[in-house]
Design a protein around this nucleic acid. Sequence first.
DNA 1: TTGACAATTCAACAACCGTTGAATTTAAAT
DNA 2: ATTTAAATTCAACGGTTGTTGAATTGTCAA
Lengths: 263, 263
Amino acid sequence: MLVESQKSHPKMAKVDRDSCSSPTIEVTIVEVTMSSSAQKKSPAKVGRPRNNDKEKTERGERILNAAEELFALHGYDGVTLRTLANAAGVDVALISYYFGPKQQLFDTVFKRRAEILNQQRLEALQTAKDEVAPTAVEVEKIIEAFLRPLEVAQESEDEGWKNYCALLAYVNNSAVWGPLLMSKHYNELVDVFIDALRLALPDSNDENLYWCYHYMSGAMSLTFANTGRIDKMSKGLCRSDDFKAAYDRMIPFIAAGFRQVCC
Amino acid sequence: MLVESQKSHPKMAKVDRDSCSSPTIEVTIVEVTMSSSAQKKSPAKVGRPRNNDKEKTERGERILNAAEELFALHGYDGVTLRTLANAAGVDVALISYYFGPKQQLFDTVFKRRAEILNQQRLEALQTAKDEVAPTAVEVEKIIEAFLRPLEVAQESEDEGWKNYCALLAYVNNSAVWGPLLMSKHYNELVDVFIDALRLALPDSNDENLYWCYHYMSGAMSLTFANTGRIDKMSKGLCRSDDFKAAYDRMIPFIAAGFRQVCC
DNA sequence: TTGACAATTCAACAACCGTTGAATTTAAAT
DNA sequence: ATTTAAATTCAACGGTTGTTGAATTGTCAA
């Protein structure tokens, strides 16, 4: 006989789900579900619904929004299609009907906002280039163009952007998804920004530039992973949802790092 | 009819497992399993084994090692006890016998190396304090004491340390596990290092210090998440398993960031 | 009107999940 | 030599998983 320790498991099977895999002590989890509303199961009319049953957000979109939130919080394997269906207030079969297999759904969720975000960053960079001689943009301005759109996204009224940022953190740190999805959707952007940085730091070699970019990417990821850890660590002095505070410090922090290593 | 797109799923159920949830295209995954060896199922004698069947590493330890590797790669929900048993070359029931419920196993894996790592960092910090007047340790030295033990761990002959570092990255970025496990096992260490940094940067307020610490934590995490992304990003110029390169640049990068924000 | 098709629910599927109890073999204590 | 306990395998449990086929209801063009 080994184990006992947490004297727990004598006769408890029951795997908890619906509230999603969560650690040791089961602190209620107060309704993850979807911000929108929906569920409360009982009647459920079969067949195509009337057109005048206008729901403010379409079902397909509701699924994507809920998926975004849940995948960001629990990861790919931590979310079951039934939990997701419940959160989105739709039947589970509808998910496959709209989006195919689970992996394809994940792909779709990740892709949805990637292009928008990329475009905002490219525009910000272009603006910076237009302000001065395009060959002589400052490091700070480049970092700013890279990071600030994320702050805007996270502060957006559209709650979904915050979830997407957390999803981005998950994918970026995942050895399984990262190589696939990050390269596919963000490599082009990386090239543009590295080019700009190379111009701003002409004494650097590319190896230094890429490593520094990597550190920036890590700092950024943890920031919008939004784990609430800094709140605990600082005993409430810093709040992880205070994005202004996070980005205002992050930009000079990163810029100084680049200058140090790449000069 | 929506969906079709990846014209895939007409008649494929079969969820793939054993090779562990992995994205869209199924690129073989060439035997994740355990580095050690084991498995190849056929005879399997029931009952307690002879003592002279000396296996170089005990079964309990083999389970922990395999769990470390798989949890780091696929996350908590991405690993099933059967996959794990297979990788460790033991029967699935033995896992529960040794470690109780799955969550308790995860806890045990995370805890195992946390204390060792903390102690190494504290020693490194003490050494730095002993070299000069203990009130005037340089920022670089503090960062070095914090980061260098990780480089050593990752370069260690014991492959397990690399896996543990990746696991640490997973937990640190997880909104589910982070608040629980990081606080429990690493908060004490944070306090000591923040104290040291406060002395080295006397003009700073604590808010700045905690945010900078947070950026450092993120950069570090992504570095040992070891996703191989920097390899692709840089078209082979940088290699994510070149830890020396990673840490040699990271220390001045972070130190410069601290100096910029906290002066 | 009719007929094609889009959107939805429901029930089922085989496979798999974490966990446990019983059986078996060996080691250690008496 | 006998008993007790440890270490292991096997088979099963009740429940959950992603996915699909059939049935139902609505829309819209012909």
